[in-house]
C-alpha cells in the first residue's frame, strides 16, 4: 500500500511543480459546457429526461473530461519507458499491481481537480446541483472509479502498442466513439438500436448515469445506482488485473 502511494505521490509532486496543465485541461470542458451547452439548450428537440438540457449536459461533460484525461494518461508510461525511469520502478521490489494502481491513483488527482472545476462551473451557470454531502461524496467516488477504468485501459493500450505514435492514434480512435456512443450529451432513447447496444456496454454510460443521479436535484437513474457502481467497480478490478499482468511487457 505504501508503495502504491509512493507511485501516486510522484505524480502529485510533478503536478505541484507544474500545475499549468490542470488549467489548460479545464478549457475544453468549459467550452463544451458554456458554448455547446448554451446553444443546444435552445433546441427543444432533445428530450433530456425531465431536466433542462443544461442540467442534463453537466454530468455528461464532467464524465467526458474525466475520461479524456484518463485515456491519454498511458502515454506517460511509454514516455517513462523511453526515458528509462520505468526500468527502475520495475527493478524495485514493489509488486506490479502496486505500480499500476499507484499510476491510476496519481491520475485520479488530475481527474478530481477537473471534476471539481466543472462542478463549480456548473453551479455558476445555474445547473440545479444536489448539495447534500452524501451525494457529493458519492459523485467523487464515481468519478474516481470512472477515471480508474480509463487509466487502466490506457495503461493496457500502452503496454500493447508500445510507441507514442501508435498510442496517440489509438487514443484518438477510442475517445470519440466512447463519448458519442454514450448518454453523455444526449439520452440513449434518441439513439438507433445498434448504437444503444454499444452504449450499454460502454462504461462511460454507467458513469454518466450515476453522476446524473448524484449531481442533479431532478436527476433520475436509468439503470439504478447499484448497477452503475457495480459495473464501474468490477470493470476497474478486471482492468487492473489485466494491466498488472501486461505491465512488465512494455519494457520488451
Amino acid at each position: 500500500m505504501g508503495q502504491t502511494l509512493a507511485v501516486a505521490e510522484a505524480e502529485v509532486r510533478k503536478l505541484r511543480h507544474d500545475p499549468v496543465e490542470l488549467l489548460t485541461r479545464a478549457i475544453q470542458p468549459t467550452l463544451w459546457l458554456l458554448v455547446f451547452g448554451q446553444v443546444m439548450s435552445q433546441l427543444r428537440g432533445i428530450s433530456s429526461d425531465g431536466v433542462s438540457y443544461r442540467d442534463f449536459l453537466a454530468p455528461g461533460i464532467l464524465a467526458q473530461s474525466v475520461m479524456f484525461i484518463a485515456i491519454f494518461y498511458g502515454i506517460s508510461v511509454i514516455w517513462e519507458r523511453d526515458s528509462g525511469v520505468l526500468y527502475k520502478y520495475m527493478v524495485s521490489p514493489a509488486p506490479r499491481w502496486a505500480l499500476v494502481v499507484g499510476k491510476a491513483l496519481g491520475s485520479e488527482v488530475r481527474s478530481l481537480t477537473q471534476a471539481s472545476v466543472i462542478w463549480i462551473l456548473s453551479a455558476l451557470i445555474g445547473v440545479h446541483l444536489r448539495l447534500e454531502l452524501g451525494a457529493i461524496l458519492g459523485m467523487l467516488v464515481l468519478a474516481l472509479l470512472g477515471s480508474a477504468i480509463f487509466v487502466t485501459l490506457s495503461l493496457i493500450i500502452a503496454c500493447l502498442v508500445k510507441t507514442r505514435e501508435r498510442f496517440m492514434g489509438i487514443g484518438q480512435l477510442l475517445t470519440m466513439p466512447l463519448f458519442f456512443a454514450s448518454n453523455a450529451i444526449y439520452p440513449i432513447s434518441l439513439m438507433p438500436a445498434w448504437l444503444r447496444v454499444v452504449a450499454h456496454i460502454n462504461p462511460l454510460t454507467y458513469l454518466v448515469d450515476g453522476l446524473r443521479t448524484l449531481m442533479l436535484t431532478g436527476g433520475s437513474s436509468a439503470f439504478g445506482l447499484g448497477l452503475d457502481f457495480a459495473v464501474l467497480g468490477l470493470s476497474t478490478l478486471l482492468l487492473v488485473v489485466i494491466a498488472a499482468r501486461l505491465y512488465p511487457t512494455i519494457l520488451t
Binding site: L5, E9, A10, H17, S83, G84
Partner: peptide, 20 residues
C-alpha cells in the same frame, strides 16, 4: 539511459524510491 525523473527534484527522486 538517464533514468532519474526530470520533473521531480533530486530529493523527491530519492524520497519516492525510499518508499518503494
Amino acid at each position: 539511459m538517464l533514468s532519474a525523473d526530470a520533473d521531480l527534484s533530486g530529493y523527491e527522486n530519492l524520497l519516492i524510491f525510499s518508499k518503494l
